Computed example of a mutant assay.
Amino acid sequence: MAPTSPRRPRLLAAGAAALSVVVSLLAAPGVAAAPTSAPPTTASPNATTSDVARAAACGDGADALVTGSQSSGFTATYHGQTVYQGEYYITAIWEAIGALDPGRTSQEKVSVMASAWIGNNTIDLPSHTAFEVCGTLDTGYVAGRGAIQAIGVQDVSIPTLNLTGAPYFGLRFADVDDLHLGQIDLRMTGGIGIRFERDLPGSSNVRIDSVYASGMPGHAIETWHIDGLRIGTVTARNVGESGLLIQGTSNATIGTVDGENVGTGTGYATFRMANDNGPNVTVDRVRSRGGGRGVFCVSNSRGARINSVDLANTGNNSILIENCSDITVAGGTVNGGGEVRLAARSEFPNNRNIHIALRVDNTSVRESPCGENTTWNLSGNGSRNIC
């Protein structure tokens, strides 16, 4: 049976048979065994030559390595010394992390070369740690926790990750300073892909290069309380809620948010700002096809500019701006789908300083009630009912 809590001390190699006995004694009952075969390594369907080069380099410069397979067992080494050898993938990962220098003031790296299932367990990353999965990590479910998480730490990076399964959260963060996520591939059947917690202290200096997310019933990425966020690309496919939802997040620079069949049948959007989000948010491009909404700003969010949109055939509003201020959509196209709408609810201040420049075809544009200092620059055949 797979273990349910990490063992942190370093282990010395004392032979596979002796280690197998130790692991058996430490194993907890009630958790399903690892699968008999590891899932295949996955890669983004839009991978470029540079992406392939980065993937090929996964594992370079590692201080600790996890190798092996479900059939042959797993080995964790630290600077060439064996610290674990046995049947449990999750224990090999825990031991590799636990073997890192406890007094380090700069990053050491753990590279997981093996693919397998970690069971219903969590990988907690301490400060000054780089953790990458060069194979595919398949995960179970732990309520309220991430398959991988970093809470109350600094200087953490996940350069490469391929993750499958149905966790509560794929990745979970809070109170993190200086976090870097590189090439992240999440193909999940449950939970939320990446979550920054609402009810814990916020995070700062967060950089995310590229996320491909598909299949999860929740959000691909949901942030709370980040000061200083940089995102390259978020690609969401067949996601139940939002592609990228940012809340209480300021000083953010985002490249492309690209969604297909995101939030179908819901009020969520490929890109959503909510709950006092902002200010100083810039998004280069939002592309959305089908799904729920394309762009949604709500609940007193403010201070954001979207340079360009490409929205078509959304099932709900193409764009909904509701009780927001200082919002600019600087260009792009809307074709078919739900209307472009400026709206307001009574519990928040009315829209203020909203500036929209768009080509809108085959759907309508409506502003009700009238906001304060709204400017429109519209083209296309879409009908208009604006102030």
Rank of each mutant, 00 (worst) to 15 (best):
S379G: 13
V22K: 03
L229S: 06
T77P: 02
R272T: 02
T233R: 13
S379P: 06
E367P: 01
V334D: 05
G243H: 03
D178Y: 13
P40K: 13
Q149M: 12
A150T: 02
V211L: 05
T282L: 03
T266G: 03
N350E: 06
S111H: 05
G336V: 10
L229Y: 09
V281Q: 01
L125V: 11
D310G: 00
R302K: 14
A55S: 10
R207E: 15
I327C: 03
L171A: 14
V262K: 06
V262E: 08
T266Q: 08
V334T: 07
N280K: 12
R230N: 15
G135P: 03
A143D: 14
F74N: 05
T363E: 04
L12F: 09
I386N: 03
A27M: 08
L19E: 13
P9W: 07
V360H: 04
V156Q: 12
G182A: 07
G303S: 07
F74T: 06
P126F: 04
T49D: 10
N381V: 08
P126R: 08
N261A: 10
G371K: 05
R195K: 13
I386Q: 02
R104L: 05
G243Y: 04
G292K: 11
R230Q: 15
P217N: 14
V234S: 01
T49V: 14
G68F: 08
F271V: 02
N280Y: 13
L244I: 07
P39F: 07
A55L: 10
C324W: 03
V31C: 09
D178V: 03
W224P: 01
A143R: 11
G337A: 05
I97P: 01
R302S: 13
G144H: 13
G86E: 11
R345S: 11
G182V: 08
I321A: 05
